[in-house]
Design a protein around this nucleic acid. Structure first.
Lengths: 335, 335
DNA sequence: CTGAAAGCGCTTACAG
DNA sequence: CTGAAAGCGCTTACAG
């Protein structure tokens, strides 16, 4: 029995009812009045033949693909892995399929094209660079789309995390340990998350009555963090602690600190945003701020399922943000 | 102009030809004889209206979804990121969409169900655990599927990497440095890649005229590596070097070695399979063996595109495997 | 060189 | 309570 070949007609023939009835039983149509024994017969035939509704036919008829898209820049970034996990779970709960794509495929443009083809019923854009014409392309779309973890000035469709609060938590931890000269490895220039984390850093410093320490922009990669940390340590008055905007940057920054002969945390403390499994196994284990990334993915999908086409969302996700203290932070050596 | 709403009929009206002609122009039907000016008119109308063929209608008619599936256990494992990247690129080259899913979604069973629904034209299974009934479910499928990076005794459909060669390369490097007592952190029991890497380890040791050192199984995670390394170091005659089957395990193993007071590489050398960006930033930077993972994904998709339904594949991918020497390996201290 | 027609497999408003 | 019918938007063998 080749399962892909069984159609409603086959099931109807076996169950001795019309195809319409099979369809309504399979889809749990609440307006269907049916004798229990008929329903049983239908279900038995469905099971016996291994009937699976053909998605293409259903989509054509209902104009719904039962699929959502999620675009990310790069699968290698573990931050997205967490987002995907939440989005996948939420999609599965709605009986939707999540198709996650990165720039390595057809690119963002090709991805948005899936909307035009009717392949997906909604699109989540996580950390995508803004390219000319894409927003325009999106605006012509007939299905909802939402930016994840990133705002854009011209767009009233996003859900983000409370990056400012995360940054404050990290800085307050450092200040609480006695640090007064606290540097900041900010994210890439122009990145929305970087802006918000930097704002949190400055706010927390101000609240503590301290001036900002040295600030250097760094890509969210080990290489970016390494280069930025080297620059930061060249400051005439180097900090005793650094708040790093991203954990991948922090991994590179730790290496630069070691290369400069600094012992972590004795001579320099470090704390970074986003917790990874890996953080416990670094040398020394890295203090981090854990953000609800899976929840972000989950929420994005839920919104896609409920949002009206022209409805706007501007949401800061209210989830648990917690400091995870490991061994990369300590009181300043010469406090 | 809502792009999702333009159909062949609209384009046909504008271009003043039949819908069939539009379809054949859009699909580059080679059997179509058409006057150049007519083709121009059609193309102009397509562009002007922003026509995009409806995928559901096309799939229903042609019984092809133009979509491939890739199932992985977990997006957080960076090894899969690399495979996805290659698979995405290959799919895009075929104008196919790749839908990658993990166990966090509907699970492998739900994933295989996509086949039954006609949603995908082929499925790649990367490192999936074998569950009862799933192979049976797959055998009923009417589209090709292939196991990636993993064989199964009952299945003649796989493409794998040359794990044995990778292992030999690593062990020969250690032996070349002068190590004679070489331990092995093997992968999880039952994992096919682990078996092949262990075979390579033993073969290389035998070729060097050396007996196997202590061998401990370890999950492909930092935690698994950490636990296994602790066990291995308890050996009455501990090794001066360790070949670790997986880079994630190695990260945990390095931490255990440090915790045991061992300096890497002075007191113990370590080399692991799979290269990551991260490896350069560990303390010390980790010597690895780089495997062609993206190529594996690419090859899997290419096979899906060309394989007959009942054709078998048993392929060991012939791609570059190279040792990347960093600072975690050195001659033994007391050679 | 171009058009008319059938049909892929569903869902749904309607008839009885 | 169940069936007959239309139609979603395409592709393709065929007619002319």
């Amino acid at each position: 029995m080749k399962s892909g070949r069984v159609t409603l007609a086959h099931v109807a023939a076996v169950a001795k009812v019309d195809r319409a009835v099979i369809s309504r039983v399979v889809n749990n149509d609440p307006t269907l009045n049916i004798r229990p024994e008929t329903r049983e017969r239908v279900l038995a035939a469905v099971a016996a033949l291994g009937y699976r509704p053909n998605v293409a036919a259903r989509s054509l008829r209902t104009a719904r693909a039962h699929m959502f898209g999620l675009f990310i820049p790069d699968f290698a970034n573990p931050v997205y892995a967490e987002i995907i996990k939440g989005a996948e779970a939420a999609a599965a709960a709605l009986s939707y399929v999540l198709v996650t794509g990165s720039a390595a495929g057809a690119g963002l443009g090709g991805y948005i094209d899936l909307l035009g083809q009717g392949r997906i019923d909604g699109l989540l854009l996580a950390g995508a660079e803004e390219e000319a014409g894409l927003l325009e392309q999106l605006d012509r779309a007939t299905v909802p789309w939402i930016m994840l973890n990133r705002r854009s000035p011209s767009v009233k469709r996003y859900v983000i995390l409370d990056d400012e609060r995360a940054a404050r938590l990290a800085v307050e931890h450092l200040v609480g340990l006695g640090h007064r000269r606290v540097g900041h490895l900010a994210g890439p220039v122009g990145a929305d998350t970087a802006l918000r984390r930097s704002a949190g850093y400055s706010a927390a410093m101000r609240d503590a009555g301290l001036p900002d320490g040295p600030v250097v922009a760094a890509d969210y990669t080990p290489a970016g963090g390494a280069a930025a940390m080297t620059a930061l340590l060249a400051d005439p008055d180097p900090p005793t602690a650094v708040f790093v905007a991203n954990v991948a940057s922090a991994i590179g920054a730790m290496e630069s600190a070691r290369a400069a002969g600094l012992e972590i945390p004795r001579q320099i403390s470090m704390v970074a945003v986003h917790d990874l499994d890996l953080a416990s196994y670094l040398a020394p284990p890295l203090t981090t701020v854990r953000m609800p990334l899976a929840e972000l993915g989950r929420r994005g999908v839920a919104l896609l399922g409920s949002l009206k086409l022209d409805e706007s969302v501007e949401e800061v996700l209210d989830g648990p943000i917690e400091l995870i203290v490991r061994l990369s932070t300590a009181p300043p050596y010469m406090a």
